[in-house]
Amino acid sequence: MPKLALTNDWVKRSPSRLNMERIEAFFSGHGFTPHRHDTYAIGYTLSGVQSFRYRRAQRHSLPGNTLVLHPDEVHDGQAGTDAGFRYRMAYIEPALIQQVLGGKPLPFIAGGLSSEPRLHHAARALLCNLESVLEPLEQDDLIYDLAHALDQAAGQGVTRKALDFVAAERARAFIHSALDRVITLDELSQVCSRDRWRLSRDFRALYGTSPYRYITQRRLDLARAMLLAGHSLTEAALSAGFFDQSHMSRHFMQSYGVSPGRWLRRLGQS
């Protein structure tokens, strides 16, 4: 990790495979504005007080806590003291968790903080080495342990309504094949042979977000990759399927709490 002055905010991204992003970051004050993304944000505070507003209450994470922010839940982030805070976080697509849980409702951790030892151990194992790419089998093992630790920590009962995991997975795969065009819920319903509103309900329960939010996030994934590769904001926006640069920037702020330009500067890309 870079040895930077404590007055400088920074973000270090780990090289990683698709479907998961791992970071370490330091913020001396305000980190990011209220936003939401369709991934789990799972990690822990290394030093300082990590304060955030989540589900209508102010929360404070200290070293030893495990943060588990549920997909599509609005949150912000800032230092709780003048010393700033440093943390590690993994952003994990719910589809990876569902590959382990096989169609159960996504585990939800009330308040976004947990002191469960098994969950803390699983999060630390996933984030212990950010300098190298995880091997495929290594990542699968870590996700397996994390998914079961999440499920245990959440302590969920059996859902009363059956969820059609196969239909929802078919819808998710179709979305990935059509990122460059408009998709309707009726079209997804036809592809999956599932009533449109039952499909929408199942998709939200299984992946933590709506089909529209899911496709928007995949477009943002593409836009971020293009920005990191040196493309302009306009090029990235149009290639990722947004109407224009301002359309992309608006969704970027809503999903990450910072503008595309500020995001690049924190990564030392501009």
Rank of each mutant, 00 (worst) to 15 (best):
G111F: 04
G84S: 09
H251F: 15
S239G: 03
G31M: 14
L46D: 14
S270W: 11
H60C: 09
S200C: 03
S61R: 08
G157F: 10
A57T: 00
I183Q: 08
A173F: 02
M226D: 04
Q254L: 14
R124M: 08
Q99F: 01
P63N: 03
E116S: 12
I175P: 02
C128T: 13
G112R: 06
R250G: 00
L267M: 11
W197F: 11
G230E: 08
R55G: 00
R88T: 05
D151L: 10
A240Y: 06
L150T: 01
R86T: 10
K161H: 07
L228D: 09
S200P: 00
P211A: 08
A110N: 00
D180I: 02
D151P: 06
A5N: 14
L228S: 10
H30R: 09
E135K: 10
A83S: 15
D9A: 08
L233M: 11
Q190G: 06
R17A: 12
H231I: 02
A205T: 15
H70S: 12
M253I: 15
L4C: 06
L62G: 00
L185C: 03
F27I: 14
R86M: 07
G102K: 13
G111Y: 03
S14R: 05
E187S: 05
L126F: 09
P117M: 09
D72E: 09
Q98C: 00
H231R: 15
A5D: 15
P211G: 06
R13Y: 10
S16L: 08
N8C: 06
R124H: 13
L220Q: 10
L185M: 15
A83R: 14
D244Y: 01
G77I: 12
L113S: 08
T184C: 00
R86I: 02
G241P: 11
